[in-house]
């Protein structure tokens, strides 16, 4: 059978996205071109910008690094690319994946910054898990990682961060948010650029890439990536949703982008209150309360009562606690810890 795209070479693979039989060369090319289309049609970058690639060593960020360097050359984006990795301090899992990131650094000749929980917060995930156990550790990790990336990005002096979130991740997050009742995040988790009004925007150039195609691309290109799941992440609930999504994809492959389309079209009712955007009075990073979730959690860790810090009322308790230092304590909005715990981030790196 001849390739459906070039009609010359022999077809070697079936595209997971649409079932078309294509040759390897065409697959690579259209995969990259689709990312290019995503970048151009959404104005993700401006010439001369410094862009950090959030690199975990996993398949998504490895493919992202590969495709971005390729397109930067092919289309002369004029971007200054950097690799930015977070070292959570998880023995076995993170040291190995960081080795993969080191390889990428050599291969693509990109500067790499590794920023660790230990240097920012004074705690490694190994230590945190020892203290809080395996049930709540992901809460800590998610909150800390988000801020760690921001801090790393400032250190590098970049204009924005790109992350390796793919179409499956986004679709999964949409379904998760529906099931968790998190309508606020539901209304924004599909956005290709987030935090535009913050100082450090983030974008997802792989928004329309199917996970199956990313795996296929990485595999056929023989890219070095690290494929073990985080040793501390059981995430049973996400597992259910992941399986549902896989089943939906089996029934109709386009389900994945159809979910994204649905999310684009679902708007929050105008009566729904949106959490305010503030800066944390303690660390200065973005927060929806006076003190950000990361600072509250850290405070809990340092005072030896981490479990209390996870609760919803933790922020109020924190402010009560620190009333003396802090003059004008107002009742914080009772909103779900909005931006800074962004569950979406915790998955792919």
């Amino acid at each position: 059978m001849k390739c459906k795209l070039c009609d010359e070479r022999k077809a070697a693979i079936k595209r997971p996205k649409n079932g078309h039989a294509v040759c390897k060369e065409c697959f690579f090319y259209v995969f990259e071109e689709e990312v290019h289309h995503t970048i151009v049609s959404n104005n993700l970058f401006k010439p001369g910008e410094k862009v950090a690639i959030g690199a975990s060593g996993g398949k998504d960020s490895t493919v992202l690094a590969h495709v971005l360097t390729t397109l930067n050359k092919r289309y002369d984006y004029g971007l200054d690319l950097f690799l930015l990795s977070v070292d959570e301090g998880i023995t076995g899992y993170r040291d190995d994946s960081l080795k993969t990131v080191e390889l990428n650094k050599e291969y693509y000749q990109l500067p790499l910054l590794v920023i660790s929980y230990e240097e920012i917060y004074g705690w490694t995930m190994d230590e945190i898990v020892k203290l809080v156990g395996l049930n709540n550790n992901c809460t800590f990790c998610g909150v800390f990682r988000r801020q760690a990336l921001d801090r790393g990005a400032y250190k590098l002096g970049v204009d924005k961060i790109t992350t390796g979130h793919n179409a499956d991740d986004i679709a999964e997050t949409v379904l998760m948010n529906i099931l968790r009742g998190d309508f606020f995040r539901l209304s924004k988790c599909h956005k290709i650029i987030t935090g535009e009004d913050d100082t450090m925007p983030r974008c997802k150039p792989l928004k329309y890439c199917y996970e199956k195609e990313i795996v296929m691309y990485a595999h056929l290109k023989k890219l070095d990536y690290f494929s073990t799941e985080c040793s501390y992440a059981p995430q049973a609930y996400r597992g259910y949703v992941r399986e549902l999504l896989k089943n939906m994809e089996k029934i109709r492959p386009s389900s994945i982008v159809d979910i994204i389309h649905s999310a684009e079209k679902m708007e929050l009712d105008s009566d729904v209150k949106i959490p305010p955007k503030l800066s944390c009075t303690k660390c200065g990073f973005i927060s929806s309360n006076k003190v950000c979730k990361a600072c509250v959690l850290l405070d809990g860790l340092n005072k030896g009562r981490p479990k209390i810090a996870i609760g919803k009322k933790a922020i109020i308790a924190y402010e009560e606690d620190n009333k003396n230092q802090d003059e004008e304590v107002k009742e914080p909005e009772e909103t779900k810890e909005a931006e800074e715990t962004s569950g979406e981030i915790s998955k792919s790196f």
């Binding site: 459906k4 009609d7 649409n18 071109e33 689709e34 995503t38 329309y208 684009e264």
Partner: peptide, 21 residues
Amino acid sequence: VDHATNILEVGSHIKSVSLEG
């Protein structure tokens, strides 16, 4: 009645590729 937000929601935006790319 609604339309794709991005053509990549429909599928690929590429119909065919010549050997020269």
